[in-house]
């Protein structure tokens, strides 16, 4: 399914959070959304799953405007891994994953075998099947993220939204999560903080800064040292990975002289 943000602007409390963002994700592609904190990544995602309405522009799933389509119908096409989940009342892990089936069911009915199958398959895929009967509140942050990912997978939708999915995750599961995502044959949009993780796993990258789209394209096109320096206000060097030959970005404090330690460094050592 194709996702298109068609000149989307969002104003919240008088502040322009997004300004005329225009991005298209072709079916089956994986778009990484990067940008500093507060650049509007989450807000852009939220216009897609109907949590924030654009003040102008449209968000399209194929040809359908999500804001002129029913909530449930949108939820049947778009599954979301949100940043946080409330655990005041603990559902078990399996029940939490089964919530993915909410848009497809109604009322008191029991979960169908097909629903249970999707939930278990998702739990096995993220390696959390062995904690299926535990309350989510008792899991570590990383385990909880696995369960949130399993929920998004169990929805079995053509579009997947991941809002900072690698938060709280150790490096091994960060890589595992990106592998799981790239192996899926779905349209994926993920807000990511780790630029190298985004560059190595995403098909396309969109860079947001202050609510504007400042660069978009393949990782090599979008994540040039110049763009990263301007947007994140850090010093950037592009190195070549010794084994894979892929470009790797390394960062330092802004204003550093290339090639030598800064005065700031010396002070720390002294």
């Amino acid at each position: 399914m194709r996702v298109r943000f068609d000149h989307v602007s969002v104003t919240l409390g008088g502040r322009d959070v997004l300004r005329d963002v225009d991005v298209e994700i072709r079916p089956g592609r994986f778009l990484g959304l990067v940008g500093p904190n507060g650049s509007g990544k989450s807000t852009l995602l939220r216009t897609l799953y109907r949590a924030v309405a654009p003040s102008s522009g449209r968000v399209l799933l194929d040809e359908r405007d999500v804001w002129r389509t029913g909530r449930r119908e949108v939820a049947r096409s778009v599954a979301v891994m949100t940043q946080e989940t409330s655990t005041e009342f603990d559902l078990t892990v399996l029940d939490a994953v089964l919530l993915a089936r909410v848009p497809f069911q109604r009322g008191f009915g029991r979960d169908t075998d097909a629903d249970l199958d999707l939930a278990w398959t998702a739990l096995e895929r993220v390696g959390a099947a062995d904690v299926a009967d535990r309350p989510i509140g008792r899991l570590s942050g990383g385990q909880r993220q696995r369960v949130m990912l399993a929920r998004a997978l169990a929805a079995d939708t053509p579009v997947l939204v991941l809002d900072e999915p690698t938060n709280h995750l150790d490096i091994a599961f960060q890589l595992e999560l990106m592998r799981i995502a790239t192996d899926l044959d779905r349209t994926i949009i993920a807000a990511l903080h780790d630029l190298n993780l985004a560059a190595t796993h995403c098909d396309d990258i969109a860079v947001l800064d202050g609510g504007r789209l400042v660069a978009a394209g393949t990782p090599a096109e979008a994540l040039t040292p110049q763009v990263v320096e301007d947007v994140f206000r850090v010093a950037v060097d592009r190195l070549t990975h010794p084994r894979t030959g892929r470009p790797v970005l390394v960062f330092d404090h802004p204003g550093r002289e290339p090639g030598g330690p800064t005065e700031h460094r010396d002070e720390i050592h002294a």
């Binding site: 940043q83 989940t85 919530l99």
Partner: peptide, 24 residues
């Protein structure tokens, strides 16, 4: 309530994720 048990389950997980699950 009988028609809303699943929506109520979704509400337990927070407003944001309930919204993402298609609950108004």
């Amino acid at each position: 309530v009988g028609f809303r048990t699943r929506a109520m389950n979704a509400l337990l997980t927070g407003d944001e994720s309930a919204t993402a699950l298609g609950v108004d």
